[in-house]
Design a protein around this nucleic acid. Structure first.
Lengths: 272, 272
DNA sequence: GTAAATCCTTGACTGTGGTCAAGCGACGCG
DNA sequence: CGCGTCGCTTGACCACAGTCAAGGATTTAC
């Protein structure tokens, strides 16, 4: 269905919610509010969890708003929970012998972290500190794991979803490493196309800035590539893209510009 | 420990075994030989499985050598196994209404496929055909899942490992999307460095061609970048790289070339 | 309605990564 | 020893993606 474009097939629907989970300005204490499960349903581990189960799984979790500089956990502490970052930023870091920090990762919304430690049933391997007022969901390991125990299917669903994500990400890495921007764009367009040949009109599911960044290029470059694709029968106007010949675009994607004859002449002729 | 370089920390040890699992030329029938668990221990799902358990888990699996064009499974068939490709190539594809194929993915060694379908306990969503004589391990779902059932810890270990891989891959995607080749190389070097500041000499764990491809660039570019890094106190000769000042390299990686003063003068002075 | 803002495109310029080609050192082999 | 291959570096060249800046196009606000 996606013709070797696995990487981009799943690109659009999820990730980066439009509204970054309203941030309530609090002083020091972390204010709490109920969590809408839909906000986290797109996370890899929850992707295959049925919505009605997800609520139970999270155990009426609340959103905690933590101010800057608050520590979420320290390395070595028992990993009795994992976290979902809805907005703000969190820094994961290790402390070296000489007291210096070594940043392991900057977590950005929306994503979970410390799940691995929880599953490993051990201790947090690093420290976590809020570096920008953050809305967080703390999921208690005890409850979470007991849900998994009661509902064996759940673990399998998560394994399945994570396997798929691994596959997707690997594909994306490959595409970024070895495909030109033009190929990445054509792959993206093809992943949107519903048919395998002939003409089709697709509508871009996101703003071009976002698409560009997902494809690893600047919006200007995306514009230019779309312009270059015009010679190959791809008309773009606004968010709707008309692909005159899906098979042609696919050849272009697979074999590059030389092998695919331009739609230039015919297109130009048709215009007049 | 890796200072925001998560993506590359795990780059070296695993992946792409030196010897691609000896390929025994067979006619049509698939010859079998015992499987060395060490060959597959590096796969994401098995990464955290203790070696002694891995043998049981695979249930004295054998390596089957399948000739080109053999079908491994068809879409819709019950997903009663998953596969590990040791050598050769396998094509995953869907069949469209009009009978045409749509390639979903080309699987390359060493990697597993169809695990997601097995975990989901359903049917294979696509067809799989060997397109280049392939050494494969077929892991029966029944046995595999019953192992998971008996040893609950196993599923958690796999969840943990897959979560970590997801994190790593996400990091790698980010690096490829938004870091310049120079930054990727410096990140790679820093991930090899054992200390956080001062001088250190690391030895490249792989051939430069391989490193270059992992970092998403041509070997020539890697050469040039290493050359440019010489101005910043990074001397390369052969596989050994001497980093004069790890902290300096880190600044370079984080903030770019402008902010990090060149080691040019001092280095040149030191040489004479 | 105009004005403002946002989104997108286009142009010009520059840096630089890919490509082709040659050169170099190390190593293995007859 | 010469010869080859192989891994790596260097140079020259060019295509092209990033950047800055300007100008449309479209939507939103007032």
């Amino acid at each position: 269905m996606t013709c070797r474009l696995g990487a981009y097939a799943k690109i659009c629907p999820v990730r980066g919610h439009a509204e970054p989970a309203k941030r309530c300005r609090t002083g020091k204490a972390c204010r709490r509010q109920r969590l809408d499960p839909a906000l986290v349903a797109c996370l890899p581990i929850f992707e295959k969890v049925p919505p009605e189960v997800l609520g139970d799984l999270l155990g009426n979790a609340v959103v905690e708003v933590h101010p800057e500089h608050s520590m979420l956990f320290e390395a070595g502490a028992p990993a009795d929970a994992f976290f979902i970052l809805l907005s703000g930023r969190v820094k994961l870091f290790a402390l070296l012998e000489d007291g210096k920090e070594s940043i392991v990762e900057l977590v950005e919304p929306v994503s979970s972290f410390a799940e691995a430690a929880m599953f490993a049933n051990g201790q947090f391997p690093v420290n976590a500190e809020v570096i920008e007022e953050a809305a967080l969901v703390r999921v208690r390991a005890e409850h979470f794991l007991s849900c998994l125990r009661q509902n064996r299917d759940l673990a399998y669903r998560m394994l399945s979803a994570l396997s798929l994500w691994n596959r997707r990400l690997k594909g994306e890495v490959r595409a970024l490493r070895e495909h030109s921007p033009l190929r990445r764009v054509s792959a993206f367009l093809l992943s949107l196309a519903s048919c395998e040949e002939g003409e089709v009109t697709v509508s871009l599911p996101l703003k071009k800035v976002i698409i560009a960044s997902r494809l690893g290029m600047e919006p200007e470059s995306l514009s230019r590539v779309l312009g270059r694709l015009r010679d190959f029968g791809v008309q773009t106007q606004g968010a709707s893209v008309r692909i005159q010949d899906v098979a042609l675009l696919r050849r272009l994607h697979l074999f590059g510009e030389e092998t695919a004859p331009r739609r230039n002449a015919s297109a130009a002729a048709a215009h007049q």
